[in-house]
Design a protein around this nucleic acid. Sequence first.
DNA 1: GTCTATAGAGAGATAGAC
DNA 2: GTCTATCTCTCTATAGAC
Lengths: 227, 227
Amino acid sequence: MSQAAPQRPRAERTRIAVLEAAEAIFAEKGFAATRLEDVADRVGIRRASIVYYFKDKQELYHAVLAGVFGGLLEKISAALSRPDPLPARIEAGVGAWVDYVGARPSIARLILREVADAAPGHRPAVLEHTRPFFDLIRQQVFERDGGAIARLSPIDPVHLASTIAGATVFFVAAMPALLPDLVLDPVSPAHLAAHREEVLGIVRRLLGTQGPRKTRPARRRASGPEE
Amino acid sequence: MSQAAPQRPRAERTRIAVLEAAEAIFAEKGFAATRLEDVADRVGIRRASIVYYFKDKQELYHAVLAGVFGGLLEKISAALSRPDPLPARIEAGVGAWVDYVGARPSIARLILREVADAAPGHRPAVLEHTRPFFDLIRQQVFERDGGAIARLSPIDPVHLASTIAGATVFFVAAMPALLPDLVLDPVSPAHLAAHREEVLGIVRRLLGTQGPRKTRPARRRASGPEE
DNA sequence: GTCTATAGAGAGATAGAC
DNA sequence: GTCTATCTCTCTATAGAC
């Protein structure tokens, strides 16, 4: 808060500024199209100074991914580790995921790019950062409570995770992209809350924990629009 | 079928071969990282020959998008134009979407990249190809049958479309990417059918046309794992 | 139509001054 | 720590032969 005694030494502040700028530009343009000069411009330094902190472009990129996925793992881990019983914990984890992407939307684009980049024979960079998530889910969802998940639903967890992840990153990144005419910010509290509810509904449906449907009862074909 | 009298002149065959090779490599590597030399190698010609057919890299890229989205529009249009009543027609459209992506999976990666590329101030290339889809949906879903859709559900159609699109492209592109250990081909008939059913379930739930649930009844909290 | 050869721009990496 | 200067490589685009 005081300018006379900065909390962090200059080097660390610069390093963080480089990481933040790189996160934004890698997310926006992708690895190949990002120029280190753009990152430097955004920070207000020269290109060569970036190399003082990060050996090369690859290392900078990996540092960006580590920061983004590290923060995500923290949030999801906290949600899944709570003492609640199973369906509630899964919903808390999904909610944490949606909230994190909303708060740090560049992760949506970074994930979209990593997924698109992955190809047979090309281990995507993101793989180094996803293993902790699989470990976490195995421990907190499958092994805890003596395999209670199996009694809940036979749903394929990979399939479920893929659907949730895809729906959210697409929502956050694609809405402004494909509908630029709409002045619609998917990350605004109202839209994000709506998306979270929608995703949670999908989770409940796929887990079979939907319970009695209150908000939108299924219409029987009594007076429907069918011919 | 006969080699002596090829159906198409050589020029057209080469042009098509270039387009197919470019589709695969743009999908795999993205626009910036794709080298025209890679495309040429795949076709078995030299880089300069590509320029004979396509003025430059941008034009080749747009031609690829036009081909991919043109094919998709054709399939979805056919499904939505059928004489069936509304919920069935929407389901047919969604099914056509899933089947098309399964049959031509490079579209999944191309869409992922286009969405990630879109940024404020940067009209993504894909926008030129998506307008016909909006027109189609407006005509066949919202205006036809005298606005029957409004009686079905208050769901935001953009939201619904985003969820479906995201779930499918993510499923097709991300499963092999993030889980390379699994020998799992998302495009195989069995997995694709499972995904189609899952997506249709989401559609029905979001449209409120789910009807009585047969396959996976909601468990009441009688004997569940809740503590 | 397809090729070879080359021009020219762009951007990452490095060396070394301050 | 941050800078300037430069080296080097890659890749697009073009010109022109066959």
